[in-house]
Simulated assay, not measured.
Amino acid sequence: MSSSREKVDKEDSWFLESYWKNAGQAVTSVAHIKEGLRVRLEMRKLCWCLVVGETRKDAGPRS
Rank of each mutant, 00 (worst) to 15 (best):
M1W: 11
M1D: 11
S2M: 07
R5V: 08
E6L: 14
E6V: 06
E6G: 12
D9N: 11
D12W: 06
D12S: 10
D12V: 04
S13M: 02
F15T: 00
F15G: 00
L16V: 02
L16P: 01
L16W: 01
E17V: 06
E17C: 09
E17D: 08
S18H: 13
W20F: 10
K21Y: 02
A23K: 07
A23N: 04
G24W: 01
Q25S: 08
A26C: 00
V27M: 01
V27T: 09
T28M: 12
A31G: 08
A31V: 04
H32F: 14
I33W: 05
I33A: 10
K34P: 00
E35L: 15
E35W: 13
G36D: 07
G36I: 06
L37C: 11
R38F: 03
V39Y: 07
R40G: 08
R40C: 15
L41M: 10
L41S: 12
M43A: 15
M43V: 15
M43H: 13
L46N: 09
C47E: 15
C47S: 15
C49G: 15
L50V: 14
V51W: 05
G53M: 03
E54G: 05
T55R: 10
T55A: 06
R56Q: 14
R56V: 05
K57Y: 06
D58L: 08
A59D: 08
A59F: 13
A59V: 11
G60Y: 00
R62Q: 13
R62C: 07
S63F: 11
S63L: 10
